[in-house]
Design a protein around this nucleic acid. Structure first.
Lengths: 142, 142
DNA sequence: TCAGTTATTGTAAAAAGTTGCAATAAGGAA
DNA sequence: TTCCTTATTGCAACTTTTTACAATAACTGA
């Protein structure tokens, strides 16, 4: 199943349009395992669609995130990375060596329920990155 | 107790120095209830120390966060805000109207323990912002 | 108090991200 | 197919954030 076939209906259903730019960006996210920074997305997608603009990349990534086709993740220092929305998960990153772990969303489920109960809010999204020290770096630490 | 008296020993203990720039920034964070963006910190601190530079503000905020004197919080779209480290808490923000709620850190304690057990990491910091719909906006939503 | 060490700052330039607006083109209707 | 509406893009200017490196000044020890 092509990216076009997979994602076009999802956009149409919400009243949005599929464009070569969005397709190139979706294709890039789809075919590169992990998370990419906006610049990385731009550079990769450029080989596919040389007319692509960085502005469009930023806007499209935010657009895809708002519509659930991509997940944004905070990677510290206020930087965002994106990845295709295969499944809900979060990240746990080592402050020292940068090693990363996936945190399954099910771990957060109970926290979500508590937050919703306590606040009255309905939680929508929260691709979060937790920070800490990985086992290896803990040994070399004070 | 002045900011200088309060924070200088904490920096010294870690081998760092107190400077007029750090003091001005700490003072600014200390005396303005909520969280501030780097630009807001710069503008406010400037009245106190006209020679202050934006570069220094960025560097100092990150420095203070790393050393536990300030808390960074992800406010969506990759933007960071900072506040003085009075107590551990997180934010819950409405996607529609922007209303914000404080989430006490105790709610996250059990999640932290689970994450540490499952990963072997030692969690250090995670001033997080969760996103959702507040009760009011839920009514006006589909 | 003074000199030495080096953490910290400022400068300037680059990189990253945002915004307004006119031009373009995707998709629905005729 | 062709026209029309308007979502979407590109451009250009702007704001925000980062980086390299030389100059400065905070603390330590004599």
């Amino acid at each position: 199943m092509s990216c076009a076939d997979e994602y076009t209906p999802q956009l149409r259903a919400r009243g949005y349009r599929m464009t070569p730019q969005r397709l190139a960006i979706l294709h890039t996210l789809h075919h590169s395992g992990g998370h990419l920074s906006p610049t990385e997305v731009y550079e990769k997608a450029l080989t596919q669609l040389p007319s692509l603009t960085e502005t469009t990349v930023y806007r499209t990534l935010e657009f895809l995130a708002e519509n659930g086709l991509a997940h944004p993740a905070h990677m510290g220092s206020g930087h965002l990375v994106y990845e295709i929305a295969h499944h809900e998960h979060h990240h746990l990153k080592c402050r020292v060596c940068g090693a990363e772990l996936e945190v399954n969303h099910t771990l957060l489920k109970s926290l979500y329920r508590q937050l919703e109960l306590a606040s009255g809010y309905r939680l929508t999204d929260s691709h979060l990155t937790f920070f800490g020290l990985c086992p290896t770096c803990q040994k070399g630490e004070n």
